[in-house]
Nucleic acid binder design. Sequence first.
DNA 1: CCCTGATTCGC
DNA 2: GCGAATCAGG
Length: 219
Amino acid sequence: MAWTDERITQLTNLWEKGLTASQIAEELGGVSRNAVIGKAHRLGLKSRPSPVRGAKAAAKKAKKPVLKPDAKPEKVVKAVRAAAPISAPQPAATSNDATAVEQKKSSLPQMVSIGPGGFLRQGPGDQQAPIPPAPPRRLVPAKPSPEIAGKTTLLDLNERICRWPMGHPGEADFHFCGEAVNPGFPYCVEHCGRAYQAQLPRGVRRAPPPMPFGGPRVR
DNA sequence: CCCTGATTCGC
DNA sequence: GCGAATCAGG
């Protein structure tokens, strides 16, 4: 499964929302927990409350057996090769998580969106700074910024974009596919493939079994 | 043992 | 770039 722009957006939002890598992997489907973590790292959105590093780096930073600048040429045979192209490996890359968090927050101020019936939930590390002064300004309509979130909300739906649901209703990040529809269908080409399974070429006319209780009689 | 994220490294 | 394998803490 390739990392489409859609899936990367999902991953980013879910990750910053505080879901575990396993949950995200299950949500996305087709990827493993490691894949999610690996991608998250490559996207640069790591350093989130992690059981290992969080306690280790915050509480006691004495032990750091991984990748020291002056590592002994013992098991660094491959490490040397990896570090060779880099003239100067970052000295304090992992020593200060707070700085990294701050930088992340400042660089990505609003990865927010409001879905249908959903609301933006704050993750553990997403605590917004309290707003002490009473804002004398008048309220301004929230900026949609769909190009940032890349999400398609219920209000965004029309006849030209795919309305395949992404995630589950009720979740804060529930949204819709948003791709261009397969002309004549409510979904994009990809999701049409999932919505419309191959029908057996029977001569019998279609007989939809899923009839709602007390549905209209068909005769 | 289970879970978690971090890291490495072959592909 | 990707992710399984591996590491390491809770």
